[in-house]
Write a protein that binds this DNA or RNA. Structure first.
Lengths: 196, 196
DNA sequence: CCACTTACCAACCGATCGTTCAGTTAGTAT
DNA sequence: ATACTAACTGAACGATCGGTTGGTAAGTGG
């Protein structure tokens, strides 16, 4: 598939640079001017690819949310015991978070100022709700302790998982699989050494 | 202690309103104009109490960091086994987070754009380092499992704790003590029901 | 009453913001 | 060549940003 016309950036190319800049300075603090500098373009060139700064954010958030929702739609999230399915979702979330690190990082910093941000937050809440239902199933099944509210459990679980964006950097000593193992180990078995 | 001069806001009063606005819109997206509106003041009146927008942020971050560091300086963080001291620090962090919710929320969203933000991040890293040392002690003592890197353990623990600012609201069904119990329960014993 | 202290306002400043517009450049297809 | 497509530029726009200046309002203490 050969590209026609003058070579240069396409939407995805600009998106990657923009998301990196948004994560570095924050969305609001990233001006179209410095974004243009990092792209090696003029400000107005960006508007050939996107109609507004807001639209860049929208595309980025859509990519992150689509990947997360994809985990819940995988076969492993629909077969087996509730414990098995929850295990799959937790590991899948860690995997997506590592693979799409900049996009998910951006998603997790959205506060809900604009319509785009509010829509993204609503989609994220829907995702959390589906996970919470899975936690409830695992409690009913008897594999997860029932003395903690399901919503608190889900939030602590994803608090732990989401915090990975704050420090994980590709190429570090921990790869994604090892990280997922650690998260599941802490979440399910805890840190304490049994004192038989 | 009677206040002299014309009654009105003092620094702390403005700080509380400012921090709430910063958390609602984000620091950069909160203009001095809308901040003045929420205070019922003119923009310039704010500059009677603070020399710059940056200084408001600095005071707020200082309050959050001071409270967190205070936990590590309490007696309970220096006496007993490493496990006991870690338990005290985890519960203390949850307590501070709930008591100083807006201030800690603001701290956790700082990205390091300005000098003020970078200094706050450095202080936060120093705090985390002291907690990591405590985790290492507990591992050496044999009370915490040693198959996960101490830094990963510390980050997952505080990932879970810090995420509380995203959803905890005072007056909800969970009070601070119950929340601390839940966090420690998940962290130490895990969610799994033993399948003897 | 007057001095003092603290709190506040209206008007304005230069800089920067996101965005627009009319044209230009660099490639492919026939 | 010519037509077409896509990528890009430079200058300018109204709006808004954080911050300044000079003066005023509203209390307390003597």
């Amino acid at each position: 598939m050969l590209r026609r016309g003058r070579p240069g950036y396409d939407q995805q190319g600009i998106l990657e640079v923009a998301v990196a800049a948004f994560n570095e300075y924050g969305y609001d603090a990233t001006s179209m001017g410095v974004l243009a500098d990092r792209l090696g373009l003029s400000k107005s060139a960006i508007y050939h690819h996107f109609t507004s700064k807001d639209e860049i954010l929208e595309r980025a958030l859509d990519q992150a949310l689509g990947s997360l929702e994809g985990v819940l739609d995988e076969a492993g999230a629909a077969t087996g015991t509730a414990a098995d399915r929850l295990d799959h979702v937790l590991r899948g979330a860690v995997r997506v978070l590592v693979e799409q690190l900049p996009y998910v990082t951006l998603l997790l910093r959205v506060r809900g100022n604009t319509d785009v941000e509010r829509r993204a937050l609503a989609r994220r809440r829907a995702f959390d709700k589906r996970v919470t239902a899975l936690v409830a199933e695992a409690q009913a099944e008897g594999t997860l302790r029932s003395d903690i509210d399901v919503r608190v459990v889900e939030r602590l679980l994803f608090g732990m998982i989401n915090s990975i964006v704050e420090w994980y950097r590709p190429g570090g000593r921990e790869d994604a699989d090892r990280l997922a193992d650690d998260v599941v180990a802490v979440a399910l078995d805890g840190l304490r050494v049994p004192t038989s």
